[in-house]
Design a protein around this nucleic acid. Sequence first.
DNA 1: AATTAGCACTCTTAATGCATGAGTGCTAAA
DNA 2: TTTAGCACTCATGCATTAAGAGTGCTAATT
Lengths: 396, 396
Amino acid sequence: MVQLDERKKSILKAVVDDYIATAEPVGSKSLVTRYHFNVSSATVRNEMAELEEMGYLEQPHTSAGRIPSDKGYRAYVDSLLSVEDLSEEAADRIRHYFQESIDELTGLIRKASTVLSEQTGYTSVALSPHLKRSHLSQIKILMIEPGRALVVVVLSAGVVKDRLVRIPEILDAEQLMRIANAIEDQLSGMTLDDITLVTVATAAKQTTLPESLLNQVLYEAYVSIKQADNLEVYMEGSHNLLSYPEFYDVKKAREYLKTLTATGMIAGYMSELRDNADPGDEMQNDESVRDQSEPPDKHLILQLPEKRYGNSQEDDRRNPAYTVRIGQEIMLEGLRDCSFITTTYKMGDFVAGRIGVIGPKRMAYGKVISHISFVKKTLNDQITHLSKGKSRTEGK
Amino acid sequence: MVQLDERKKSILKAVVDDYIATAEPVGSKSLVTRYHFNVSSATVRNEMAELEEMGYLEQPHTSAGRIPSDKGYRAYVDSLLSVEDLSEEAADRIRHYFQESIDELTGLIRKASTVLSEQTGYTSVALSPHLKRSHLSQIKILMIEPGRALVVVVLSAGVVKDRLVRIPEILDAEQLMRIANAIEDQLSGMTLDDITLVTVATAAKQTTLPESLLNQVLYEAYVSIKQADNLEVYMEGSHNLLSYPEFYDVKKAREYLKTLTATGMIAGYMSELRDNADPGDEMQNDESVRDQSEPPDKHLILQLPEKRYGNSQEDDRRNPAYTVRIGQEIMLEGLRDCSFITTTYKMGDFVAGRIGVIGPKRMAYGKVISHISFVKKTLNDQITHLSKGKSRTEGK
DNA sequence: AATTAGCACTCTTAATGCATGAGTGCTAAA
DNA sequence: TTTAGCACTCATGCATTAAGAGTGCTAATT
């Protein structure tokens, strides 16, 4: 981006904007007329040729217009895009979704996902919180019927998970409770990561039950604890992308859907993402990004219908609360023509889970970013609200 | 179907078979050559014209081949189709899926759904059991932290559901237990349908707690009990149908996906289905169905590559264990070009839930029916296996 | 009376040619 | 450095054509 003068930036931005709006390769002539450049099409043509040379644009075939390359989108997102704050109506619409109070964390996360897909018109994904580093707070073993029990695991964050298990038929409710209490006494406060089959077994040593009976229960308790941080994925609006021309090719659409529904694929990918990771290329030079806020000099010949450059959202850009992955940057087959915008939500003090929006590369980045930012905020609020009083049990 | 002589039946069957295989309108000439009829194409042509007259076939346009109408498919499914038993390899493949033992009912149902979609190549749906008529067996209220509790509801069938709720902060674990015990003492054995807010409130009268405190807990307990029979839908392989030419039109594909993912749509539809419901039209005459088993007379000019008429599967037909809905019979927009084959699975003694396969009308009915029948059987076995020992708690 | 051969006709599909127009790159003038 | 101008390219749309698969109908055959 360092190499791009103002005019090139304007042109690149215009090309991306136009292509996002129309899905048609954009040519020099229509650019000039539609965006009221005060230079001739020939000049724009030359600039576009250079932009192509530099890798920001590409041509589907000779004598067609240009479309942005992944690098072009990247530059657009990193330094050309103006992210507006969400309009009051849109914010209200989102708040409205969250109005009916929900008492389960999963319900909230689901809702966030629904909101995102419905309000953006793309596909949304949400990941249940990552709980590896949370502590065991309680464990109960509830007798269901001889031979079957329900293990309930409560984590520090107030998250509750349970699991039906098979146990020796001779055990009664009283004995199960004693085992659970022993485990709870010894292990509560430990992080899930630190708990092993050995620690569980040791914890239950003090109970007077014969080992042969204990073993199966302990194993199930252990598995239940370990599974408490199982990732869950919520997805909404996967059909939405079929409205966009890039998926008119059914083969592509199928690949895309297959990738989305393949169990674990998206979850695995999302859980490995890191926020603020500089998508390593020459764009990372922050100076050039800041350039934007300079007053437009006489070279900035583009007169945008509405100018939104260089003001408050610069803060967002300096400390982006979201991650954007574009096209090939997403390492999943079937999502090659997509972009993936994600952000995290918090539970208590540390980063918990992730929500995201998947759309065509040609997606309305500004709109999605403002929506996802707002949903993130709302979700965080709701979660705090949900677990108020939580601190009292924490660490037990 | 009464009106159809053997030759018409043969021809209709051949047309449907061919169209299912090729997705191309089938003409008289290719029918004669491909299926080794020993009559001329002209004769077949006349018969096809009559079949069209009668409503079993239709023409996409003049001078094209014929394709089956919904009525044609209906006749095919009701009396022309030969359902083979599942091959041993296919059966093994299914058994293999169920090999790893699963301790949760939902896990089993999920698995059944996965198997069906993967083995048939279509979309599968499974509904969690319908529990309205099962009894409340246990209810526990577990303190999670001051102000929050987990209500665990155990039903007669051994099904366990739970729900996080908010409660007055002053209540302690001891009090919650007393409330739960009171409810359990009074209401266990009642069907979910019979339990009302009033019965719950009455049950808890004997506890010595002040009403103001009780009310919120009772309400939450009531809701938890009522929600224990919430239907859940599991769907698998929704992308599969995109492989079939009838969905090459992206618009259709989108409608289809939208209908599938619309919450409640499929669940509502499936839960209203009744097995063995005669799809009221002139086909219901059982005599004609039986005709099939008669030795082919000299009019049966069709020599099928492999004949499977008139033997064991006649029993299946007399007492079909599955329901087939074809095209317009499915009253869901977006599934107009689909067929929907469902069957039920049992839990204990009575019908519990439903599993089904959605494919194009042009689906391989025989294959799907044999698969779904086998999965049904396997699922029933697994469920019985799961809740052996159940009877001991039943009725409590 | 049922079957079939034959024929004229219909309609889709694929291939071809052609005109149009939006786009390009390049050159030479401003 | 910018721009006007021009030749060139290529996708798109449209009309035409030929082939092929299918039909319905009639008259001959069994």
